[in-house]
């Protein structure tokens, strides 16, 4: 099959939509999706890192010796993570405080290292850019989907605004740790109902 930018970009939204099709990077998905705001913050931070690390790795793939490639990828990814960390602290302090540890942990998000190894190290820059952006935005959408369900049911709010009727008793299970696992499992089952293509 011929590789096109459109295809590489769009596959991240359905065919290998993380974290459902590509079951990687579960920790942030479970941890930060108690509020939509956090889901968006996490998703966009991950997209930023994924896009830039894909582009950089793809552009210097020829000069990286095979034996130290993983180490080089880690340095590059970690650099972008630290940039995100600093920028978030400077401009989105409250979200960065909410996400806390999980911003540092973008560095060990398997999706990013996985894309570097499986895609960016073998494909030209423009395709890697499309791949990184597509998968990153797909991941962001998944986070928004999960956090919307969890926030509305668990707190009765959406982006902090009350959306349920006044006497609605928040279903606190949804924002707790066990609720995160169950909710993700059920959404995954729902998505499995539809074929990949």
């Amino acid at each position: 099959m011929k590789k096109t930018i459109a295809h590489e970009f769009l596959k991240g939204f359905w065919e290998i939509l993380p974290p459902f099709r590509l079951v990687l990077g579960l920790c942030p998905v479970l941890a930060v999706t108690t509020a939509v705001e956090n889901g968006i913050g996490m998703g966009l931070s991950t997209t930023f890192v994924l896009f830039f690390s894909n582009v950089i790795i793809s552009s210097i793939k020829k000069i990286i010796p095979k034996k130290v490639r993983i180490a080089s990828y880690i340095i590059i990814i970690a650099t972008f993570v630290v940039i995100v960390e600093l920028v978030m602290k400077a401009y989105f302090f409250s979200i960065s405080k909410q996400l806390g540890l999980f911003i540092n942990l973008i560095v060990v998000n398997c999706i990013i290292l996985g894309r570097a190894e499986a895609f960016a190290s073998k494909n030209p820059i423009y395709l890697s850019a499309a791949d990184g952006l597509g998968i990153g935005l797909g991941f962001t959408l998944s986070l928004i989907l999960i956090s919307t369900i969890r926030e509305i049911l668990g707190k009765g709010t959406f982006l902090g605004m009350q959306v349920m009727w006044n006497s609605y008793e928040p279903f606190a299970f949804m924002v707790s740790a066990p609720g995160a696992f169950v909710c993700l499992g059920l959404i995954l089952a729902l998505i499995n109902l539809f074929p990949k293509k």
Binding site: P65, K67, V68, I75
Partner: peptide
Amino acid sequence: RMVAVLTAIA
């Protein structure tokens, strides 16, 4: 080459 590349990236 390995060391040089890693140092340069770092």
